[in-house]
């Protein structure tokens, strides 16, 4: 496993994360793909039910956080006959390495899939250090 992006696991159980909102909501960890390109890394996350307006992507220090809010799409109070997946918001965060150029991170959203492009930071040129003799 590469050290470029280390996933941050929440310390608390996932349900606790959403406590601050007015009503209890579930928060799920979305499945992701990460692959390397010549320019850097590309991250794709499955966020069904999330739109470009309800997704939040944040880089703070070296932590990349993605949060997707899902608006309920089933009428409230209907009878559930069978349930295989839960509906809630999506949250996942990663630690970025210095290799990623934080300033140039870009993202787009398409059919419920978020694609984040993480360009590699240009390698600093070797710098010669002048040694002064006294």
């Amino acid at each position: 496993m590469s050290q470029d992006m280390i996933e941050q696991r929440p310390d608390k159980p996932e349900e606790d994360v959403a406590k601050e909102t007015t009503e209890p909501r579930y928060v799920f960890t979305p499945p992701i793909d990460i692959f390397e390109t010549d320019e850097g890394l590309v991250l794709r996350a499955d966020l069904p039910g999330v739109t470009a307006e309800t997704v939040e992507l944040q880089v703070q220090d070296n932590k990349l956080t993605l949060f997707g809010h899902v608006a309920p799409y089933v009428p409230e109070g209907v009878k559930v006959l069978h349930q295989e997946y839960g509906v809630g918001d999506f949250l996942r965060s990663f630690i970025l390495s210095d290799e990623v150029d934080h300033e140039r991170i870009s993202a787009k959203f398409n059919h419920g899939v978020l694609e984040v492009v993480l360009p590699r930071a240009p390698k600093p040129e070797p710098r010669r250090i002048q040694i002064n003799s006294q």
Partner: peptide, 8 residues
């Protein structure tokens, strides 16, 4: 895919 079934 996972499925949910509701009755309206």
């Amino acid at each position: 895919p996972s499925l949910n079934l509701f009755e309206l």
